[in-house]
Amino acid sequence: MEFVAAHDLDEALAAKAEQPDAELLAGGTDLMVEVNLVHHRPKQVVSLRRIGELREVSSTRIGAGVTWSRLERGDHRGLAEAARTVGSPQIRAAGTIGGNVGTASPAGDGLPWIAAADAAIEVRSKARGTRVVPWRDFFVGVKRTSLERDEIITAVVVPDDIPEAQEFAKVGARNAMVISTVSCLVMRGDDGFRIALGSVAPTPIRATAAEGMLNAEAKITEAALDEVARVVSEEVRPITDHRSTEAYRRHAAGVLARRLVERSLR
């Protein structure tokens, strides 16, 4: 295995330009699982861990190399809540938001927040420089993104007007180190409610029908909350697998959305 420990982004981009099939290694919490569990043997690995600029954070830009344990203590409340549910302390100390975005698992714990925030993914290549891709265009399927082979995810770009009221919850088989069965993130701002969900479709999704319904209400009544649960359950597109059933995921998605909308009103 060829291993490049890049010291800065240019070095990493050069390596990736030369070897577009090289695997990127940040926290290693996804890649090493592939290596250990599926005996995946990448031919080339480019390590991003030493690149300081990927670890920079501002309120509108989160470097791809920022770990969950930093996000747990960060300013974005919903993201911090989501970060707290990731893996174990060891995994949170290693795993990064860029890795979560790059892996693009439907169950990625950070992704509903990105969707609710209407954030974009900043990517860079040696050949074409930087481009910023809206999250809807970035996540295209189960573990599939529009990242080009020679590109590296450099940051999550956050609009500066996202609501401060943010709530996250997930349902899983147990509390610790669990892949979520359903996850949900709700934001409430001046422009209304945003509801994003994970593990209920190939990509993170927004419950746009439920948002539209809620945002048309003058006052959020119990009946409106019940309607949110019903509409969310209908508009998600979950599957049945060994972790849960389609029916349970639909139900739990509605429950979580209703619960978080209610919580955001307090």
Partner: peptide, 16 residues
């Protein structure tokens, strides 16, 4: 057996 790994077969961990 569909879940023969500790990813998918969940034993309780300390927070549970």
């Amino acid at each position: 057996v569909r879940n023969p790994t500790l990813f998918d077969y969940k034993i309780p961990a300390a927070p549970d």
